[in-house]
Nucleic acid binder design. Structure first.
Length: 266
DNA sequence: ACACGACCCTGTTCGC
DNA sequence: TGCGAACAGGGTCGTG
């Protein structure tokens, strides 16, 4: 997309989680994508029209690229699928298809440069791979919190971009019980989370993400970080920590599954 | 200010 | 085989 013009935008329903902005297709048509960015789990495309396109994939959303030399769809487009909601035809022939069965995703347009004023972006915590995320900043954000550390790390206002899988993996690597109150973790242990979070995310990115069911990268390739899971989706299986011998448990916290080893995570 | 549950929606898997 | 319940990668909103 970067550097290319959206030759045609097809918007096939009124919205996803929320209604699309007024005249979205018209506002996208003819615009050149000057830069593609990411903030937390939001994809941001700065357009030469003075607007920024914000995209969130929710749980089941995906954007597939076709009509380029990338992946399996060499020089051709796949047949349209159910739940293809937005299609962007780029000037060089690529097609970007946004598909989202559950429609928990979102798209919006807002004036470029006003990131901090957008309700979905304001108040987000630091990027875990950026300089603003540090041992002192995380320890400060967790201090005094009465919520479980699992819930705190999923909260995008504390650190931006961790999802359920990666929080489970991080807490196992850190030897922290997901039920432990965030405010009752020592400075040292809170600080130790920082390099672990960076490592888990970096490793997952290098592996192309986690393909649990049907997740694919934009070129259609499967991720393979799921083969590196230590706890996620391993209920009843042995803990893989050297010499631990515990059994992975599944509990529900804030409506989400937490997988952990009760023996080595305290 | 904070913490919790309900809710948004569709598809897949699991137990009976 | 059929059917309902449970569950899924996320996040907001209202309530207490």
């Amino acid at each position: 997309m970067a550097g290319h013009v959206i030759a045609r935008a097809e918007v096939r329903r009124e919205g996803l989680r929320w209604p699309f902005p007024d005249r979205m297709a018209e506002r996208l048509t003819g615009a050149r994508v000057e830069r593609l960015r990411r903030r937390s789990k939001y994809i941001l495309a700065d357009l030469d029209s003075g607007e920024t396109l914000l995209i969130h994939l929710g749980m089941s959303g995906r954007m597939l690229i076709s009509g380029t030399s990338l992946g399996a769809f060499h020089h051709e487009h796949p047949t349209p699928q159910k739940h293809d909601h937005v299609v962007l035809e780029m000037d060089a022939g690529a097609r970007i298809t946004y598909n989202d069965a559950r429609r928990f995703g979102a798209m919006d347009l807002f004036p470029t440069g006003d990131d901090a004023a957008h309700p979905l972006l304001a108040g987000l915590g630091p990027e875990p791979l950026g300089n603003a995320f540090s041992e002192t900043s995380l320890a400060a954000a967790l201090a005094g919190k009465n919520t479980p550390i699992k819930t705190a790390l999923l909260d995008q206002h504390i650190v931006a971009g961790l999802g359920n899988i990666y929080v489970c993996e991080v807490l196992h690597r850190a030897g922290l019980n997901p039920k432990r109150k965030a405010g009752r973790i020592s400075q040292a242990r809170a600080g130790a989370l920082v390099p672990i979070i960076r490592d888990v995310l970096s490793e997952a990115i290098a592996s192309g993400g986690s393909s649990l069911r049907d997740y694919r990268q934009a070129d259609g390739e499967l991720g393979y970080f799921q083969h590196a899971f230590q706890v996620y989706d391993r209920e009843g299986a042995p803990c893989l920590r050297e010499g631990c011998g515990g059994t992975i448990r599944r509990i529900v916290q804030s409506g989400r599954s937490s997988f952990y080893c009760p023996k080595c995570q305290r």
